[in-house]
Each structure stands twice: as C-alpha cells, then as structure tokens.
Simulated assay, not measured.
Amino acid sequence: MRLFLAAAAIALCGTNALAQNGPVAIGTLPQGSLGYSIAAAVAQVATAKTEIDVRAVGQGGSSVYIPALNQGAIDFATSNIFEAVFATQGSGNFDGSANPNIRVAAMLQPFEVGMMVAADSDIHALSDLKGKPFPVGYIRQRLVGVMQEAVLEAAGLSVDDVDGVPVPNFVEGAKLLAQGTVVGVMLAPGSGVVKQTMSQLPVRFISVIDGDDAAAAVAKSLPGSYVGRVEPSDRLPEITEPVDLIGYQYALLTHADADEDMVYALVKALHENKAALIESHGSFRRFDPAAMATQVDGATFHGGAERFYRETGIWSE
C-alpha cells in the first residue's frame, strides 16, 4: 500500500510543484472522513486562489501517507498536530520510525475526538467499557489506537480491560457499532462516518477526559492536545449533553524539501480566504487565520510558511 501511494503520488505530482507540471497532492484520510473533507476544501481554495492545482488524495491512514510525505512523494498531508510531533520524533504511532522531514504548513481548525456509543447504551463513562466488546488494533490507523490508549490510561484503564475486537480503522469500527458487534468507537463529532452511522443507529458521545489529572495525562501523551468541550447543537445531534473530548489543532503538513514559494502561496491563500473555505466545508467556520502559526513543542514549521507568518505579523518567537 505504501509503495502504491508513493507511485500514485509521484504520477499525480510530477517532479515539480508548479501547476503546469501536474497537480499537487494532499494525502489524507478516506472519503467520508472529516479529514478528507477538510483536505478537499483546502485543495479547492488553493486551486482557485493560486496557480497551483491541488488535489485531496484519500488513503487508508496516516501510516501510509505520512512516510510518503517525509520522502517527498507527496507535498502535503493533513493530520493533527500531535501526529506531526510523533512522526518527526519517531514516537507514538510512529514509535521507532522517525520521519524527520515532516514540517507544519498551517493550523487549520480546532478538532475534537471522543467515544461514540449507541444512544440507548448503558455506557456513560469510560469505566463502563470494562469487559465490553470494543475496537482495538487499528492496523491501518495506528494513531486512533494511540489516542484511545491515552484516554483509557488517563482513566486508569488499558486495552486489556475491554473485550478487544480488532479493526483496521475507525470506519470499520463504526460499522461494527451500527451492527451491535461493539459498544462504541472513537470518532470525531460531525464527521461523515458519524452521520452515516446515525442513519442506521441513533448515537451519542460520552466524555473521555474527566478532571484536571486526566487532562494533564492526556496532554502528556498527546503533545499539543487539550480538553475540547463540545456543547449540544442542532448541527451535532450526536452530542446530547456537554462532553469533554480530546481537543487539538488539525494541521496541514508538508516536508522539508517542499518548494518554499509554493508553501508560501498556499498558506497565504488559506489565510486570505476564510469565506471560500467555509463555502467549501462548513467546519471552517472554526478556522482562525490568526492561529495558523500556533506553535507546539516538537513540531517544526516549513520555511515558506514561517516567512508568510512573519510578514503577516502572526509569528511568535
């Protein structure tokens, strides 16, 4: 799969980042995920507002497209900020496999992830998962497993406390939830997968961070994360009460050898076109151009992005 992505990306991107030599790829999660929708919106706006032709390329997971990004087989990718740290350092879901060429281009929007269960479930807290069938493994999306382990450990649990059901990714986990095979799955409210599941089964989210100690433990395990409080709204029927989820910035990543002018032009287009981003996908209502240069220990910004942020005055030393 990794070789397939690299070959496909090279065919897509060509040997030069400029539009006349072929489209530029943004590696991201599969279609139907919120990650794909975000990448597709970035690609649409970048293509419309620059001379660069950009395409979102959905793949099974970041374990495929992050190494391709590191190698320069693709020029951009989307993921959360703590994965950028993990990938760069060779920790977390990239334990022992450092990708030192990963760079941050922009923070795109705040994001929350938590546990989704059936609306009529007796699961109301993480402790209620003990002994219950629950997705584990995530061989194609190891980051989901890392996040799941972080919140379980912060609650005094481990994957050994659940009746583990191996899944390759969260999409399959959601299918098993709809079928009643598992009692929950880790997902992002508002994503296409959540909406698809709700068409088959009413669902709700539960809090995954309970108290300051748990918040500190999760932040240590997932650099740059914080408690993301999500309130009920008409837009999120799956949120039936205020819940505390894993909050973090979802980021646009690039690689160290990406053309500096290309990265500069792309982040400039995003910074100046929030309305167009919102038109492409409503989640960009939460996009804050002034927060695009938010820095996290362990993550390094690309020089082209830093140049633009310094010129704009939002870069902080």
Score class of each variant (00 low, 15 high):
204 R>N: 03
231 E>M: 15
248 Y>S: 13
190 G>Q: 04
244 D>T: 04
167 V>Q: 05
203 V>H: 08
176 L>G: 10
175 K>R: 15
172 E>N: 13
253 L>A: 10
248 Y>Q: 14
245 L>E: 02
209 I>R: 10
171 V>Y: 14
239 I>E: 07
230 V>W: 05
260 E>N: 15
216 A>M: 11
217 A>R: 15
247 G>P: 00
197 T>V: 15
202 P>G: 02
175 K>L: 13
196 Q>G: 12
230 V>E: 04
182 V>L: 04
212 D>S: 15
179 Q>Y: 11
229 R>K: 15
186 M>I: 12
173 G>K: 02
193 V>M: 11
244 D>E: 14
248 Y>W: 14
223 P>F: 09
222 L>I: 08
212 D>K: 15
255 H>M: 01
169 N>P: 01
192 G>K: 08
248 Y>P: 00
179 Q>N: 11
178 A>T: 13
259 D>I: 06
190 G>E: 02
258 A>M: 07
197 T>C: 08
259 D>H: 11
199 S>V: 03
240 T>S: 07
213 D>G: 12
164 G>K: 03
210 D>A: 10
236 L>V: 00
188 A>M: 12
238 E>D: 09
166 P>T: 07
241 E>P: 00
180 G>W: 08
206 I>M: 10
167 V>P: 07
234 D>H: 08
195 K>N: 12
259 D>A: 11
255 H>E: 08
239 I>R: 11
185 V>P: 01
177 L>R: 02
245 L>N: 06
250 Y>P: 04
252 L>M: 09
253 L>K: 10
238 E>F: 04
214 A>T: 09
251 A>F: 03
207 S>D: 02
165 V>R: 11
241 E>Q: 14
196 Q>M: 13
232 P>R: 11
213 D>C: 06
226 Y>P: 06
257 D>P: 03
212 D>H: 12
189 P>C: 00
216 A>P: 03
207 S>A: 01
230 V>D: 01
203 V>K: 09
171 V>P: 07
175 K>C: 09
181 T>K: 15
227 V>R: 12
227 V>W: 07
